[in-house]
């Protein structure tokens, strides 16, 4: 699985929301699509992209397709890069809060 394709998969807000939802446990395509104002075929494209990157897998039983997050498929290297991204994102969110506090203090003077 290419790192680029993972980042591309993560670059889209709909796909991030799907992954976030699946982080809480498996869900059907119907459940996943519910929060989005999107035609089902468009939504299925997002599911397809996530499935091709290996970030999720899905299984069809009758007419219902259930998706599961595929954590283990993140190989060590991809995982490491993804962790680095998470570290920077988190520390910079901390910095946003600090800057907000410091700017607020300046205004108070």
């Amino acid at each position: 699985m290419a790192l680029d394709s993972i980042f591309q998969a993560l670059a889209d807000p709909t796909r991030r929301a799907v992954l976030q939802r699946l982080g809480r446990g498996p869900a059907t395509v119907g459940e996943l699509a519910e929060p989005f104002q999107m035609a089902l075929p468009s939504f299925m494209k997002h599911v397809g992209i996530l499935e091709r990157t290996g970030l999720i897998r899905s299984r069809k039983s009758g007419r219902i397709r259930t998706c599961t997050l595929e954590h283990k498929n993140l190989a060590a290297a991809e995982r490491w890069f993804a962790d680095q991204r998470a570290i920077w994102a988190s520390r910079y969110q901390n910095l946003d809060s600090l800057l907000e506090t410091l700017t607020g203090e300046e205004h108070d003077r």
């Binding site: 991030r16 982080g23 962790d83 991204r85 994102a89 988190s90």
Partner: peptide
């Protein structure tokens, strides 16, 4: 990467997985 897998940092970072999935939501 190999060292990260061996020492405790990796398991600490695993808890960041959730964060990874929410990244970008705000920034």
């Amino acid at each position: 990467i190999d060292m990260g897998l061996k020492d405790g940092m990796a398991s600490t970072l695993e808890r960041l997985d959730e964060l990874l999935l929410t990244i970008g939501a705000t920034a």
